[in-house]
């Protein structure tokens, strides 16, 4: 009986001795879009190894950077952040870099970025032509650097891109492009039958990479085709 009393006493002490947690759970968040300021379209991105948003929370000594990734369609959302002031930077963009900005995040905050993509992939068309997937497009570049390479990428997942592909048909340009030139890239289906299995649907996407170190490719939206 006495033992039981001691156990009870100990548990009561243990329960009241500290609060359930020191901090409230994160309740704020940040979301938004990357919008091409000329066309008002969302800027296409890579979901893996693509452009990232770096955010640094204020009020700490030696704060570590945290990162969020962007969706392929150029939108982003992190709905579990602590309400606080943050510095927002964009790391490895596929658009002309923008200055870091400070923002007060309170509740679910929206922040859109108006940007100029390095390259716009225009008049994009991807069709199946016989045994080939054929992509045609024009490039409009918004900086004077060379376009390093262009590519047509294929994957079973809709988030296809340079970083996520089963098959790629790439061409190194290393030149400044003519906005009126029509580029053509092809994927031969029989010679890639191990990856693009006949009868299945795959997603195809055209990309173009500017020759600026640390930049990421620009894209046209992905297209789904049966092969």
């Amino acid at each position: 009986m006495k033992k039981l009393q001691i156990i009870l006493l100990a548990s009561v002490i243990a329960l009241v001795s500290c609060k359930k947690d020191n901090y409230d759970a994160p309740s704020a968040g940040l979301s938004g879009k990357f919008i091409d300021e000329a066309t008002n379209e969302q800027v296409q991105m890579d979901i893996i190894r693509g452009t990232r948003i770096e955010f640094i929370e204020h009020g700490y000594e030696n704060p570590q950077s945290q990162f969020m990734v962007l969706k392929n369609d150029g939108s982003y959302a992190n709905t579990l952040m602590f309400a606080n002031a943050y510095t927002i930077k964009i790391s490895e963009p596929n658009f002309i870099p923008i200055a870091p900005q400070d923002i007060e995040i309170k509740g679910q905050t929206t922040l859109d970025f108006k940007v100029t993509p390095y390259i716009r992939v225009k008049d994009a068309s991807i069709v199946k032509n016989g045994n080939k997937i054929v992509a045609t497009f024009k490039l409009q570049q918004n900086v004077i650097n060379n376009v390093q390479k262009i590519g047509l990428y294929a994957h079973a997942d809709s988030r296809v891109g340079e970083t996520m592909r089963l098959v790629a048909s790439e061409q190194n340009l290393n030149a400044v492009t003519d906005p009126n030139h029509v580029y053509t890239l092809e994927i031969d289906l029989p010679s890639n039958s191990g990856q693009l299995k006949p009868g299945n649907n795959y997603h195809f996407r055209i990309g173009a990479l500017i020759g600026i170190g640390g930049s990421k490719p620009n894209y046209a939206p992905a297209v789904k085709l049966g092969v």
Partner: peptide, 28 residues
Amino acid sequence: NPKTFQTKSYYRYIPGVGSNGLVQNPQY
């Protein structure tokens, strides 16, 4: 699955920058 090496991986991250105050390596 296909493998891709990220350029940041040419350097490992510096552990414990919050307390040792060292400059972190790129993209970590």
